[in-house]
Design a protein around this nucleic acid. Structure first.
Lengths: 162, 162
DNA sequence: CTAAAATGTTTTATGAGTCTAACAATCATA
DNA sequence: TATGATTGTTAGACTCATAAAACATTTTAG
């Protein structure tokens, strides 16, 4: 049922969601600025997304996501955030590069791989970095969906220490 | 001087290099099969790459990379391999998905980020996974370009043990 | 309230990448 | 070596994404 979107259309949906979440009324010009494209490109994209039932856009008016559009946008944003945080928190990239790379990578990573990035991140955050069987524990977590016993104890301990 | 290539043109160059490395004479049909496109698309791509001095392709003949084309192809392939190995060796993805994802990610990862993926991989391989200050050591490696003393000793030791 | 500024849309064009259909060259073998 | 099979090319069309220019609407300030 849900037609799969192109990278470009996903970017438009994500931009609308992000602008929306910043409180402002979403306008064609702002979307264009956010994505580095001119207004006619935005109008064209909104027309297409509108036909697909992902946005509501009355001529000269404001832009809104439909429930379906919002689901897609959240999904894209989630991919973006997992990748951005992996780049900053694990690879220790600078925030600007991480943001830009995540913006491109979010369209080229399969769901299965995204899931792994996400789990890696969760693992890093749950298991302090001086834990001994590091990568082995990560593999355990991937395979069984549960953190190894030691990591759980560890996390509890460090939380108490504060 | 070097014109920056599109994802698509990079794929063609990479495909030529890979087919070449498998020993066979490189033909239009094989390139098409490798990339999942029809022959006319290959011909068009080769014409363009030819004009840019990256491949040599005489009508109805074989395809060869020029030195410049070979450099570009190697670069793309290197990106591909770093990402593929990261996906398999670190995230523990299955080889098929890793291959496919690397194929798309290789066009969306900046040089700076690729460098980090590469270093992460090298670090994982040099420092056995039960090393204590895991991520901390990785950060040290990134920052100073050298493996921490402990990792070096560790690697030497495990090599001897065999 | 009206004129100028800002914003948005339509029209038309471009470029990249792909495909199908029709044509051309090469090759392989009977 | 002639001919059918294979491989390659050209021509023409399509999609997707974009932008410039011209036009339309809305907002804002005097």
């Amino acid at each position: 049922m849900k037609k799969q979107q192109t990278a470009s259309m996903e970017d438009y949906l994500e931009a609308v969601a992000v602008l929306r979440s910043r409180g402002k009324a979403v306008r064609v010009k702002e979307i264009g600025q956010a994505l580095g494209v001119k207004m006619p490109s935005v109008t064209a994209a909104l027309r297409k997304l509108s036909e697909e039932g992902l946005v509501e856009h009355e001529r000269y008016g404001r832009v809104k996501l439909t429930p379906a559009g919002d689901r897609t946008a959240r999904n894209v944003f989630h991919r973006h955030e997992v990748l951005r945080r992996f780049l900053t928190d694990v690879l220790d990239m600078d925030p600007t590069t991480a943001q830009e790379d995540a913006c491109r990578m979010e369209h080229s990573v399969s769901p299965a791989t995204l899931e792994r990035f996400s789990k890696f991140l969760a693992f890093v955050e749950a298991c302090p970095e001086d834990r001994p069987p590091w990568l082995g524990n990560y593999r355990h977590y991937i395979q069984y969906g549960e953190l190894p016993q030691e990591c759980i104890l560890r996390s509890a301990r460090s939380r108490k220490q504060r």
